[in-house]
């Protein structure tokens, strides 16, 4: 059985249209026009135990609404949700004992007290035994290096240190599911990779199932075998984004830097590819776009070398961003 099962989940909000200005404010007092917003529109998915699931979507797509329902903060309008066999919003207090939640932008710890004090307080709240607690702390220290941070008040931690402590705090009671909401936001590259490493390590050693929402697609690239993309309340992609990159992004680019200006039309005839143009203003740089199903990069490079004396050749790989962009565009067509 799947650890998380979401069936036909729908959440709609009733919001009232606020009229602008003084006159509008007056009208609002007496007559309110309501409109329904479908934040989540009939979505279904399953997450198996031990998975790291990437959950992507633009702001307002329904991403945080889904997470709020899964964590028990929100009740859905329709559909069914089960996490660890519990319906989150029906037995919230019991449910939240089995999950961990990290918000990258906001700490879950208490501002004024030292990290270790916060941890022991959480230990008491989640009723973790002393031996389990010590074992968890030791493990976190090995991977995250939080040992030196334990006696510092939370307010004095840097953002990276704080996020590390927050992730550790969410895992103290060893929950089977952890929700990570933008855990790497605002962090520098070194700290980011440290945190990704930790997430991967905890997933591997504890078998913790993780749901990761992020704007940084390199997090997804590094951590997630499977991703969901949500847009306007609907799931528009469910699968491996790496694989999707190969499947969807068929358009590739080769950039050729030259010593001298060449006749672009004659090269186009020789190469028999659709797109060919001079990039930049100096006319010494040639960009060749092609569909990788029609012609391979090797063929193009070979022909270029036959025809010209390039100074440099670069092949541009599609980024995961372009893939996601393409998925959105495909949907809007």
């Amino acid at each position: 059985m799947a650890l998380i099962a979401v069936e036909n989940l729908t959440k709609s909000y009733k919001t009232f249209k606020r009229k602008e200005g003084l006159k509008g404010a007056f009208i609002n007092l007496f007559k309110r026009e309501y409109e329904f917003v479908q934040a989540v529109d009939n979505i279904s998915f399953h997450v198996e135990s031990g998975e790291i699931l990437g959950y992507i979507g633009p702001n307002g797509a329904g991403k945080s609404t889904t997470i709020k329902i899964l964590t028990g903060i929100l009740t859905p309008t329709a559909g069914e949700v089960a996490v660890n066999g519990l319906v989150p919003y029906k037995r919230r207090q019991q449910h939240v004992k089995n999950i961990g939640v990290v918000f990258g932008q906001r700490t879950q710890l208490w501002w004024d007290i030292a990290v270790i004090e916060a941890f022991t307080l959480l230990r008491d709240i989640y009723e973790v035994s002393k031996t389990d607690f010590q074992a968890q702390l030791k493990k976190f220290d090995e991977v995250l290096g939080i040992g030196p941070l334990l006696h510092i008040p939370v307010r004095k931690l840097s953002l990276g240190q704080r996020v590390r402590c927050d992730i550790a705090a969410s895992l103290l009671h060893n929950p089977p599911v952890v929700f990570l909401d933008e855990p790497t936001i605002g962090l520098d590259v070194a700290v980011k990779s440290n945190i990704r490493e930790f997430i991967k390590e905890m997933n591997a050693s504890l078998g913790t199932t993780m749901i990761l929402t992020t704007h940084d697609l390199s997090d997804i690239e590094y951590l997630c075998q499977r991703s969901l993309i949500i847009d306007q309340g609907k799931i528009i992609f469910d699968g491996d984004l790496q694989q999707a990159k190969d499947e969807l992004a068929r358009q590739r680019k080769i950039q050729v830097d030259l010593y001298e200006r060449v006749d672009i039309d004659s090269i186009r005839d020789q190469l028999k590819v659709a797109e060919l143009e001079f990039a930049g203003q100096n006319d010494y740089s040639l960009t060749i776009s092609f569909n990788k199903d029609e012609i391979s990069a090797i063929d193009i490079i070979q022909k270029i070398l036959d025809l010209l004396h390039p100074r440099d050749i670069k092949i541009e790989e599609p980024t995961i961003e372009t893939v996601v962009k393409e998925i959105y565009e495909k949907r809007s067509l």
Partner: peptide, 13 residues
């Protein structure tokens, strides 16, 4: 300020 969500995520009333 959104701190109520944090409260709801703890296993206490």
């Amino acid at each position: 300020d959104g701190n109520f969500d944090r409260v709801l995520l703890r296993p206490l009333p």
